[in-house]
Amino acid sequence: MPRLSVWMVRFSLIYLGIGMTIGGMMLWNKGIFISVDLWRLLPYHIELMLFGWVMQLVMGVAFWIVPRYTTPPRYGKTHRAWIAFAMFNIGLWLVLIQHTWLILVGRVLMLLAVVLFVVYLFPRLKPYGE
């Protein structure tokens, strides 16, 4: 597994653990009431599970599994994917702050990260051996 995939998958695993813990606290609160404030955690739960966990894991595994180039550098212009990784996570953290403008900036950063990742990954989507 290449280094960037290790980072992406490990980040996604941490988000999974935190996201499930938050979800568990809300489900507990649903069954046996603790505090109405626990419902404020819902956006964090959704962000962490969908973007932090699922989306980032898919990106990390795609970077690893998709066919590599036959000539070095075999993973291509990896700096683009590294920048996408950084932007995606900074964007996610900004969204998690849950302030109107920071959510917007975070979402834009995540969008740009995905644009960069798509630009990086597209040329690797080819038949084996090409």
């Binding site: 499930m20 813990t21 568990g24 489900l27 507990w28 649903k30 069954g31 046996i32």
Partner: peptide, 23 residues
Amino acid sequence: GWTLVLSAVLQVVAGWLFVFNIW
């Protein structure tokens, strides 16, 4: 209600065990 609590605990335990085991 308590079944939901148990469900929550089981799922959180599963999540962290997976993280620990696959890390």
